[in-house]
């Protein structure tokens, strides 16, 4: 049984799966049984998934330094042109209790469809990035990561600070931003993103999952990113991606978590004169 971005079935199966979380055995790099199931749930059984090497590549550490915070970078090998672009990138970690990290929805307004983020990795596992093109074609990049315990492991280094800071957001412009040129942005949401895989020892009840479910980003009035996520995102969800600014304006982020808390913030962007 696998959990796929379906909140209604999320809570109860987690109880049973939590035990499995720690018992997961090293998986072979080739397609696993887990992946067959995940793939069928995400895309149906009959859609072809092509080798992604001409469309996307992925970087991930061979062995994670911190299983609860594993950096993953997806690099697009094609431009986001109006005719052909990546419209979604889905990250999957086969052996995690909730294997679908989330989906990043993109458009030609991104200029470049690169995505970097940080995930939890619970076992030796294949990590996959599947790009869906505007014509519906699917392309996949894959890496094998050795880590253990990222989901069940301690989420918070400083639990009091995590709750004090809940919902705060930061935006960083990376490098120089110019009008009409792809420019990189980092968005950070302060949130413990509790995985729901820990028990309260006193009550023996599971600490419920509490995580950022969606993040919508607009630049001016253009949507530039929609992210739908799950518990495999690390604490303090952080995403780097590209936008193509069309002049001065504000970048706005709106995050919603599983308790229906809404966090929203806007920042004016700084542009250098065009070259």
């Amino acid at each position: 049984m696998r959990i796929l971005l379906t909140d209604t079935i999320l809570r109860q199966p987690l109880l049973a799966l939590a035990a499995l979380c720690l018992l997961a055995v090293p998986a072979a790099a080739e397609d696993s049984k887990a992946w067959d199931d995940i793939r069928a749930s995400l895309f149906g059984s009959d859609r072809a998934i092509h080798d992604g090497r001409d469309v996307i590549s992925m970087e991930a550490p061979d062995r994670a330094l911190d299983a609860a915070l594993v950096p993953i970078s997806v690099t697009a090998e094609i431009d986001q042109s109006k005719d052909r672009y990546i419209k979604a990138i889905t990250l999957v970690i086969d052996e995690n209790p909730a294997p679908v990290v989330g989906t990043f929805h993109l458009s030609p307004d991104n200029g470049i469809a690169d995505i970097s983020t940080r995930v939890r990795v619970n076992a030796y596992t294949s990590v996959r990035a599947i790009a869906e093109m505007n014509d519906g074609q699917l392309y996949m990049a894959e890496r094998f990561v050795k880590a253990s315990g990222g989901c069940a492991a301690p989420a918070t280094k400083d639990a009091e600070l995590a709750m004090q800071r809940l919902g705060q957001m930061r935006m960083k412009q990376i490098g120089t931003w110019r009008e009409g040129e792809p420019s990189e942005v980092q968005l950070m949401v302060s949130h413990p993103n509790y995985s729901g895989l820990q028990t309260d020892q006193v009550t023996q009840l599971w600490i419920p999952a509490h995580y950022v479910r969606t993040l919508d980003v607009t630049l001016g009035d253009r949507p530039v990113l929609r992210f739908e996520g799950d518990i495999s995102m690390s604490e303090n969800p952080t995403i780097r991606f590209f936008v193509e600014p069309e002049g001065e304006g504000a970048l706005t982020a709106r995050a919603v978590d599983t308790k229906d808390n809404v966090f929203e913030e806007s920042w004016p962007i700084r542009l250098e004169p065009s070259t």
Partner: peptide, 20 residues
């Protein structure tokens, strides 16, 4: 004062690591 909470969060994971 935070130890009880921290053990609630981390204890089962540590215990399983030790037992392994």
């Amino acid at each position: 004062r935070r130890l009880a909470g921290a053990l609630a969060e981390r204890g089962p994971f540590y215990r399983d690591q030790i037992r392994a």
